[in-house]
Amino acid sequence: MNNLELQKTANEVRKGIVTAVHAAKAGHPGGSLSAADVFTYLYFEEMNVDPKNPDKEDRDRFVLSKGHTAPGLYATLAQKGYFPKEELLSLRKLGALLQGHPCIHIPGVDMSSGSLGQGISAAVGMALGAKLGNKDFRVYTLLGDGEIQEGQVWEAAMFAGFRKLDNLVVIVDNNGLQIDGPVDKVCSPYPIDEKFKAFNFHVINCNAHDFDDIRAAFKEAKETKGMPTCIVMHSTKGKGVSFMENQCGWHGKAPNDEEYAIAMADLEKIGASLN
């Protein structure tokens, strides 16, 4: 996909996110929107995946370690054709396919996740499994910048760096906000890039909303041998919805009907500007 197609697709993913969270009357729009571009790039450009054959053995794997942003993953999977978009309307409802946090039984979801800090370890295990089995699939995992306060993240990072898992890309969505406030006011994870460097990662800083930058980062990751890559995505929480941008309060709250209308109008406007 060229950048314009990616932008259009990401905008559809954002509509899916706010639609799903609005319908569920609960969920996490802020961090889903901040990662919408990277979700889109992964599933529409980067990863070797096939929605018609979601379990094919040689596929690339993705683990959403920051599992609360499931609406972002689900909207992307629906956009890609893993399941009908209508499923987004039953997110979090009793008996629904789409659980509040990712569940491995959902088509396209490679690992259950949501308890922070755990997804990265599973991704590391998948990457190690590829190495042990001489398979050439790649593994991607997306973490929150608040999530990396979890100690398990650094256990996993130490292991991945030591094992030289160059088939692994750890992406940190650095939108700067967590539930209780700005990450650097709650318990600062900074400097993120230097920390991963110290754990023997190749580190790339990237603008999370610029597809040239994203493309270059993933290309560089693929070319990096002998060490895993960490891409620090500098993002805007709530990106694309005017009243959600950079607002802590939209971490885990659903828009009401009126707010939903404004949000969709914002995204329609962005969509129109891309035509």
Binding site: M111, G125, M126, E155, F159
Partner: peptide, 20 residues
């Protein structure tokens, strides 16, 4: 896995999803 049991369980989980 070194002295890091929580990560070890997660690594095992990941390994099992790819056939180990």
């Amino acid at each position: 896995c070194g002295i890091a049991e929580c990560n070890m369980i997660g690594v095992a989980a990941g390994l099992s999803t790819v056939g180990k």
